[in-house]
């Protein structure tokens, strides 16, 4: 593409845009810094109790201790692996089920009430059953995670498949396209945006799933640390685990957001 030469007004416009962006970012960072600073100072001078609220330095200390004892990576890795496995399996199953239901009207109509019931059921209620079936271990946790993610995934992706532009499908039909061709050449590409949006929701949901599972039954993991810390009134441990969860969930979200950017470039 030719490089275009822009007017001075455009330069000014771009400058203003950049300044605006910088102001937003600075404000965001300032809020975080102010929050941490207030937290630290308020607990340091015991305006609020450092026992109930912990404090940034105490959290940092706890992280260091956990790191030295090797527990930091141990617990983080366990929860992360449960989350990732649950996320992957649930997304995969949700996608496949959506694909099947999209192309078989009979199955879709038959399964509709069942999916609605499963969707409204609070999955945590199945906790005891899951433990009895899968044993008190990681299997049960991963299954809980899958259960929480899979139905929303199915519904979201199925809706997206079904809402594919009818006119485009008419074009494909007039060309004599079969169902698979229509799916891979029209339905799937036009659902890419919704699928990526579903992935974003799934990041949040799969963390809920794995932590909920660990609350239910676990011997390790960040959810375990949270529960244990709460039971022995070790607020430092609770806050530290929460911070670690925040960081890991954000990183995972960031990865999906990068994937979204890539997809947006391909499927404008």
């Amino acid at each position: 593409m030719k490089k275009q030469i822009y007017s001075a007004a455009h330069k000014k416009f771009i400058q203003k845009y950049r300044v605006n962006k910088a102001i937003v970012l600075t404000t965001q960072i300032l809020i975080l810094v102010a929050f941490i600073l207030c937290w630290e100072l308020l607990t340091k001078y015991e305006v609020i109790s450092s026992f109930f609220f912990s404090s940034p330095t105490k959290i940092a200390k706890t992280i260091k201790e956990l790191y030295n004892s090797g527990e930091l990576f141990y617990h983080s890795a366990i929860t992360l692996s449960e989350t990732l496995i649950g996320f992957a399996i649930a997304t995969g199953i949700g996608f496949l089920v959506a694909f099947v239901l999209c192309y078989n009207n009979f199955l879709r109509r038959v399964s509709e009430p069942y999916i609605v019931v499963l969707n409204s059921l609070p999955k945590i209620a199945l906790g005891p059953i899951i433990i009895i079936w899968f044993g008190a271990g990681q299997k049960a946790i991963i299954f809980m995670c899958i259960l929480i993610v899979v139905i929303v995934t199915t519904l979201n992706i199925l809706n997206s498949f079904i809402s594919c532009d009818k006119q485009l499908i008419a074009v494909a039909k007039s060309l004599g396209a079969n169902k698979l061709q229509t799916f891979f050449k029209l339905v799937l590409p036009s659902s890419v945006k919704d699928i990526v949006a579903t992935l974003k929701i799934n990041v949040g949901l799969s963390w809920i799933g794995s932590i909920m599972g660990e609350y239910m039954t676990s011997k390790a993991g960040l959810g375990y640390l949270l529960k244990y810390g709460g039971q022995v009134m070790n607020l430092n441990l609770v806050m530290t685990s929460t911070v670690l969860l925040c960081i890991m969930a954000s990183l995972m979200y960031l990865l999906v957001a990068l994937f979204e950017k890539l997809m947006n470039k391909i499927y404008k």
């Binding site: 532009d165 006119q167 485009l168 008419a170 074009v171 494909a172 007039s174 060309l175 004599g176 396209a177 061709q181 050449k185 029209l186 590409p189 036009s190 890419v192 391909i266 499927y267 404008k268």
Partner: peptide, 26 residues
């Protein structure tokens, strides 16, 4: 060859690839 009221081009494909759409289906 059926031509509709709307152009019904695939927005995620460039013009060249849109032209090949029918060829791919067939």
């Amino acid at each position: 060859g059926y031509m509709f009221q709307r152009d019904n081009l695939l927005p995620w494909r460039n013009i060249e690839k849109n032209l090949y759409f029918g060829l791919e289906i067939k």
